[in-house]
């Protein structure tokens, strides 16, 4: 249910877009092998025209396995419906930003993420995440680079992001989130791949792809409560970051949902592209939640709003 009354008083709309530094752009180009010098900003479209396809048997094999083993576990009708609803909610994020601090501890952000929860629950019911953990490679620099490369070259995925309102700079930011932080992503280990001797109780550690998606959704759900409770600390910059990272996380979830839909319905994506979509979707959700934590939930004296009481 979407009710605008759940959101707060209108506030001055600030820019929710994130600046992309030149260093990040350069690093992205380097990661994907686009090393020739160019005066133009590095963007998704720019890279799509500059990098060469690099067939990856690993991604292809994983995608084939996923398709074979998981297609029957998925309900295409549910996935398509909730994916479409998610797209509609993502497009309404500017309204959430426009309304500022939520009026109550449940509301705006929770509503945005509702279709995401239904997608998550459907995938969880079929033990989809467990199978992904068993099938997909662990995040390594090589896997991440191949994933990002495949993502940028996959027109249907690019178009899907266009459809839900990601502009060129936002799509590029997603790409940077995937490609530029291999060390960070490498710390998120599939529960069945945690090495011997340093192993968590894998019965209580959820699968990596479930942690990424479920975590992203919990963070978004927590935003209403966090922003409402901490209103005296919240700045326009914090609100910008809240919306921007929510969009990033939901964008990642949308990529995962697009791949799941494809498996269950049309089969338009190649096996390699399916793998790339799942890996990229998870990577984006991971980076998005870590950035949200640091920019929105960790509020220091330097980043808080000035006190009105002293």
């Amino acid at each position: 249910m979407w009710e605008k009354t759940m959101c707060g008083e209108n506030m001055t709309h600030a820019n929710a877009k994130r600046e992309i530094s030149g260093a990040d752009q350069t690093k992205l180009a380097m990661q994907l092998g686009a090393t020739e010098v160019s005066d133009r900003p590095v963007t998704w479209s720019d890279l799509a025209g500059r990098i060469e396809p690099d067939r990856s048997p690993t991604l292809e094999a994983a995608g084939a396995t996923i398709r074979t083993e998981l297609a029957e576990r998925l309900d295409g009708e549910v996935l398509e419906r909730e994916r479409d609803r998610l797209a509609a909610r993502i497009e309404r994020l500017p309204e959430v930003r426009e309304t500022g601090v939520p009026n109550e501890p449940h509301g705006c952000y929770e509503a945005v993420a509702d279709p995401g929860w239904r997608l998550y629950e459907h995938l969880a019911e079929g033990e989809f995440f467990e199978r992904l953990d068993e099938t997909l490679p662990r995040f390594t620099p090589g896997h991440i680079e191949r994933t990002a490369r495949e993502l940028v070259l996959t027109t249907p995925l690019s178009a899907a992001l266009d459809d839900v309102g990601f502009d060129e700079s936002e799509k590029t930011a997603l790409l940077i989130a995937v490609a530029n932080d291999a060390d960070r992503l490498a710390r998120w280990v599939p529960s069945n791949q945690i090495p011997d001797g340093v192993e968590f109780d894998t019965e209580t550690v959820p699968p990596l792809h479930r942690r990424a998606m479920g975590g992203a959704l919990l963070w978004i759900r927590g935003l209403d409560r966090h922003l409402w409770q901490n209103e005296v600390l919240v700045t326009e910059e914090v609100l910008d970051a809240a919306v921007a990272h929510t969009k990033t996380m939901l964008g990642g979830l949308f990529l995962s949902a697009t791949a799941a839909c494809d498996i269950a319905t049309t089969g338009r994506l190649t096996d390699e592209q399916v793998t790339a979509a799942f890996a990229a979707g998870t990577a984006v959700q991971i980076v998005g939640q870590e950035e949200l934590l640091h920019e929105v939930f960790y509020v220091t004296d330097e980043t808080r709003a000035p006190s009105k009481l002293r």
């Binding site: 968590f200 990424a212 479920g214």
Partner: peptide
Amino acid sequence: GPDFDGTVRPGPNF
């Protein structure tokens, strides 16, 4: 818990 590894317990841990 665990104290220092948040990757196995994502979300705010409210």
